Computed example of a mutant assay.
Amino acid sequence: MDVTNLVTIINRLDEQDLDMRLYFTRKKPNGRYQSYSPTVGPDLQIELKGMGLKALEKVQDAEQREFSPIGTIEGCIETCQANDVTSFNEILQSMEEDYVNRQQIPDEEVSRLTFYCLKIFTTHGDILFFRRVTKFNKLKGGFFGKFANNDFRKLDDTLLGIDPNVDIVIFNGEMLILNHISLERIFSIHDQYQEKATRTLGLVQSANKITNFEQFREDCLSDARVTRALTKLLNEETRMSQVFANFENVINVIDIFDLKIELAEENTKIVYEDKSQLMDITRLIRDSFYKTYMGNRDGYDEGI
């Protein structure tokens, strides 16, 4: 994403004629999203626009990399296509006129809201800023209050905080991820990881190189870290095929790294026994073990 161009677009907006909406959203038990869009006054609109602008200015010179389910590199920000996130269009739909609730948000709903979205309309395309909400918990045995006209008044417990940070920015179908974990939490992509990991495991099963495979599958899908690695591996199918096609190298890696993995059927299959082997087997499948050129040192990708 061209962040500098986006900063320029926002800077050129007429603050006396801003066109924006603020949405607060939660995911309901049935899996659908509910969004509310309260009225936002002109002064607050300017302040909200300024917060989004400052967040972008901070990352103008940051290196950008494609989103990886297994984690990001410190100092880098990630990008991906918004349509690659399954729930994105569902969330957008909850913000459309036919679905969004513009009435007063019921008090009981406030504590259920999980994120907000600031949508700025421009001639270049809509700019969306996403951020998880900050909630103020009740004081134990007390309450929050404020001074008004020399009176001290109790505040109710339906307060939400909007801080100057931004988690996700979306512009013209491209997603800029400023907070890696927030992509998972705002867009609830755990189910998407599960689906892709299941597809990867189908490819692994077809290679017929792991015994007790059904238990292996179950254990993989119950481990979030392994599920993320298998999701990424779906885009590395050739890499995985090469591992199984050169199984003698698997045998060598098991020996070099003294992995607690047994082999069966004349050293042609990996014997899966329990969860303690999940990481090592996943690293084998991903071809994560290596030897350095300069130091001739053995190692493996710490990402999984």
Rank of each mutant, 00 (worst) to 15 (best):
80 C>H: 02
80 C>D: 06
80 C>M: 15
80 C>V: 07
80 C>I: 09
81 Q>C: 04
81 Q>S: 10
82 A>P: 05
82 A>T: 09
82 A>W: 07
82 A>E: 09
83 N>F: 05
83 N>Q: 10
83 N>D: 12
83 N>G: 06
84 D>H: 04
85 V>R: 02
86 T>F: 08
86 T>D: 08
86 T>G: 04
86 T>S: 10
86 T>I: 10
87 S>H: 15
88 F>L: 02
88 F>T: 00
88 F>R: 01
89 N>M: 13
89 N>G: 07
89 N>C: 06
89 N>K: 14
90 E>A: 11
90 E>W: 05
90 E>T: 06
90 E>L: 13
90 E>G: 04
90 E>M: 09
91 I>E: 00
91 I>Q: 00
91 I>W: 01
92 L>C: 11
93 Q>G: 03
93 Q>A: 10
93 Q>W: 05
93 Q>P: 00
93 Q>K: 09
94 S>D: 04
94 S>Y: 01
94 S>I: 01
95 M>I: 01
95 M>F: 01
96 E>Y: 06
96 E>M: 08
96 E>I: 03
96 E>F: 06
97 E>S: 11
97 E>L: 04
98 D>N: 11
98 D>L: 09
98 D>F: 04
99 Y>E: 06
99 Y>N: 12
99 Y>C: 03
99 Y>L: 04
100 V>Y: 00
100 V>A: 02
100 V>T: 05
101 N>H: 05
101 N>S: 08
101 N>D: 11
102 R>F: 03
102 R>M: 05
102 R>Y: 05
103 Q>F: 12
104 Q>S: 14
104 Q>G: 07
104 Q>C: 08
105 I>Q: 05
105 I>E: 03
106 P>K: 10
106 P>N: 11
107 D>Q: 13
107 D>C: 09
107 D>F: 10
107 D>N: 13
107 D>R: 13
107 D>E: 13
108 E>V: 12
108 E>K: 14
108 E>G: 06
108 E>P: 04
108 E>F: 12
108 E>S: 14
108 E>Y: 12
109 E>N: 11
109 E>P: 05
109 E>I: 12
109 E>C: 10
110 V>R: 05
110 V>A: 04
111 S>E: 13
111 S>R: 12
111 S>A: 12
111 S>P: 03
